[in-house]
């Protein structure tokens, strides 16, 4: 589904991703962990097409498409979804209208009929139960005045409605209280199918108690320095990153 090969990315001449490789297959959940500033969000942004990043070399092929050459909205319509680490507020833009517009853009792209107001509302009502979100938030402008946790739930609600093939969750667990964490995780688990995949960026093993990953990768200084199964996350929780970093810094 997604194949990243030797990806080098820099910002204003400063290398951030330095030869990153990642293979994601349908149905898989990949967790990406790693110290602050190691390039996790950068990876998420580059995959979703944010401007300001210089692709120096390497490739990212998604469903046989050359991802890095596509406009961000086309990537979204092709099924890539990013749950933002810091969801932005858009004053005055109604949350529901926005989401309806988004869904219909995606449906149009797929050649499906657009949903009318009523069908859309019944869908959103159903999906809202997954994240146990307060209906109030639907009537408010996008993320405006939402608490940190509400913003994160809103991201997952959007994911539930848009039903992406490849979802990238950038620290969705940060800022969630314990109940919310469980709710969001169970939402993800319910949305999981054999044909969609998740890349879950997190600092905490506890999320991975709820969303069980198939693979855990450690990103450091723009490279994946270690990959393993869910046990790796437990080990990281116990030992921190130091033992890995030391190893990777020694000449290979």
């Amino acid at each position: 589904m997604l194949s990243i090969k030797n990806l080098h990315v820099s910002i204003e001449g400063k290398p951030i991703l330095r030869g990153l490789n990642l293979e994601v297959k349908p149905g898989e959940i990949h967790a990406i962990m790693g110290p602050n500033g190691s390039g996790k969000s950068t990876l998420a942004h580059v995959l979703s097409g944010r401007e300001g990043y210089q692709i120096d070399s390497g490739s990212a092929i998604y469903k046989n498409l050359n991802l890095l050459e596509m406009a961000p909205e086309i990537r979204a319509r092709e099924g890539i979804f990013l749950a933002f680490q810091y969801p932005i507020e858009i004053p005055g833009v109604n949350n529901t209208s926005f989401l309806k517009k988004a869904l219909n853009e995606i449906r149009k792209h797929r050649g499906e009929e657009e949903l009318d107001a009523i069908d859309f509302l019944s869908l959103i009502k159903k999906q809202m139960k997954l994240v146990e979100m307060n209906e109030d938030l639907l009537r408010r402008p996008v993320n405006q005045g939402f608490s940190g946790g509400e913003k994160k739930r809103n991201e997952i609600l959007q994911m539930a409605v848009l039903n992406p093939e490849l979802a990238i969750l950038d620290e969705t667990d940060s800022g969630l209280d314990i109940d919310a964490l469980r709710i969001v995780a169970s939402g993800v688990n319910k949305l999981r199918t054999e044909s969609n995949a998740y890349v879950v960026i997190t600092h905490y093993q506890r999320l991975l108690d709820h969303i069980i990953p198939d693979f855990v990768h450690v990103l450091s200084k723009g490279q994946i320095i270690k990959s393993g199964t869910k046990e790796l996350a437990l080990e990281l929780e116990e030992r921190g990153y130091d033992w890995l970093l030391e190893k990777s810094e020694s000449p290979s």
Partner: peptide, 16 residues
């Protein structure tokens, strides 16, 4: 640009 990107990321074109 962050607002525009947010909407782009949900499938909405820049002009929209």
């Amino acid at each position: 640009e962050d607002q525009i990107f947010y909407l782009n990321q949900r499938g909405i074109s820049t002009e929209d």
